[in-house]
Structure formats: structure tokens, C-alpha cells
Amino acid sequence: MKKGTLKQILLITDGCSNEGEDPVAMAALAREQGITVNVIGVLDQYDSEGGHGLQEVEGIAQSGGGISQIVQTRQLAQTVQMVTKQAMTQTIKGVINQQLQDILGDGETVEDLPPEKRGKVMEVVDEVGETADLNVCILVDTSASMKNKLPTVREALTDLSLSLSARMGENQFCLFLFPGKRKPVQKVIAWTPQLDSIERVFEKISSHGVTPTGPAIKEAIKSFASIAHKRAFYDGDDEAYDDGPR
């Protein structure tokens, strides 16, 4: 059985970019290449919600075709895995909706089917979500204000790996920090199936004031080219549908 691969960028940040390319444009570029961009805005109790930086969070996810969520630091772990899974479902549904449109026309989507048929379609969506391979490139903002949130970020990422490894499909993760020590964006973990033992990675960080979110997304896009390539879930119209076991 042929399987599809879902590609995602997961951006974890607490504020506004101030260096390099416009992250919203870079997210659009990612989407154009079949990569979904999800963004999680982390707050602690001292941050006031609704700031300028958090508007950017939504903008990036929107143009990246993904999901954004703003959370308190302590809810991070559950949110990270939920957003990732929801985004997978959304992508798969997007592909199926596309198929439905081609067949039925008139902007028909899964939701427009009668309830009896919808259950069956959702079963297929579930099945594909469970068995598809998933590549997630994680971008963590390590600018000064993120410093005391990083231990929780680390835990949330380990937890994400735990959640996803329960799936039947295969996972690949890689991890970038921005700003990096010398470069604006630093790759700290190359593509790997499991995200454990990442404790040390966060210890060596020196925090700068700059936040090069745009360049980070650009690096992430490039990184997908370096995985031994399997076919993307998006590629080939009718093949994507064949990917799902029926």
C-alpha cells in the first residue's frame, strides 16, 4: 500500500518578529510547497493577551494554511499535540474536500454530506491520519522573553513525540532554534524519528533580542528537501485519494 506524507512546520513563539523576511510571506511560500504552518503563541501570566506579536501568530498560521493557538505556558503540552493532530485532520479533509468538489462541484465539502455518509468519510479521514507518515519541522523562538518558558517547551516537545509515536504511521522531527548562537537560525536536531533526549539542546542557548521568524520559516522549508524523499500527500490529484486505505 502506498502511503502519503504530511508535512508541517510547528512554530512556537511569544512575540513579534523583527528581523529578516516577512514571516507571513514565508508561511505562504511554505503552503505553496505543500507544507502546513501551525503556530503556537505562548504566554505566561505576566504577558497581556492581544498584543501586536500575537496578531502576527494568527497571520502566519492563516497564510500557512494551518492552525494557530495562543496558550498559557502550563497548557503547552496538550495544545502542541492537539494542534498538530488537528492540522493533520484538516489537511486530509482538505484533500478529500477537493476530491468531492471535483466530483460534485458547487463547493461541496464533507460537512455538506448528509450525517449518515459523513461518519463513513470521517472514518477514512481518521484512518489516513493514523497511518500517514508525518514530517514536522519545529521552530522554537529563543529570544530573551522566551527564556523561562523553554523548560516547558522542551517538555511539550517530548510529549508531542510520545503522542505521535502512538500512531501507526512513521514520524520524522527536526528542530531549529532562532536566533541561534552565531547564525540567525540554528539547526540543533536533524531529522529523527523520536524527540527524546533534547534536554541538552536548550541548555546552550544564549538569548539575543532579535527574532528572525521569517528566516526561520525559510530554513524550515529548505529542510524538507533534505529528508530522503517520499511523495508528499498533496502531490498527484487522484493518488492522494488512493493513499487512504478504504
Binding site: T89, K93, V110, E111, P115, R118, G119, M122, E123, V125, D126
Partner: peptide
């Protein structure tokens, strides 16, 4: 979210 309700009802 309608999709989670769909699965639950199913």
C-alpha cells in the same frame, strides 16, 4: 467542532 461530533455520534 463538527468533525469530533461526527466521530462521537458514529
Amino acid at each position: 467542532d463538527r468533525s469530533s461530533l461526527i466521530s462521537e455520534a458514529h
